[in-house]
């Protein structure tokens, strides 16, 4: 089978390593980004379909796809699509991230 046109996420049928039956308890922030995505996609909002979500993940590129964790990709995709839609701006996100980081560091050192 030719791999012409196959994108990075489209891996069905390729060779790979043995399956390692790994799992971890999801962190609070992982459950939070999961919940945010579901709320944005629900009947009340219909702001963000699962297909848009996956397109956002696939657009992160091959390197990011391999190096980022699953929910890191979710967070990046959700954020990018919300910026694209004009629901949040990149400036306000950057400012808020600085504030959140300061706050979390302060709380951790209390």
């Amino acid at each position: 089978m030719s791999d012409f046109g196959r994108r990075h996420h489209d891996m069905g049928g390729l060779d790979s390593d043995p399956v390692e039956a790994t799992e971890h308890d999801y962190a609070y922030w992982e459950k939070k980004i999961d919940a945010i995505r579901r709320l944005l996609a629900d009947e009340k909002r219909k702001m963000f379909t699962v297909d848009e979500m996956r397109r956002g993940i696939e657009e992160l590129g091959a390197k990011a796809y391999d190096e980022m964790s699953y929910y890191e990709r979710w967070a990046a995709s959700t954020t990018n699509v919300l910026i694209e839609k004009g629901i949040i701006s990149i400036d306000e996100l950057g400012r808020r991230m600085s504030e959140v980081e300061e706050r979390l560091k302060a709380e951790a050192s209390e």
Binding site: W29, K32, I36, M47, M68, A75, I87, R96, V100, L104
Partner: peptide, 25 residues
């Protein structure tokens, strides 16, 4: 609080706050 303060954890918290403030959720 004992979770490491990673970039995407911070992004998620920031995103949640902004969406609540804007009344989206």
């Amino acid at each position: 609080e004992d979770q490491p303060i990673t970039y995407y954890k911070v992004m998620t918290e920031a995103l949640a706050e902004l969406l609540v403030e804007k009344g989206v959720i």
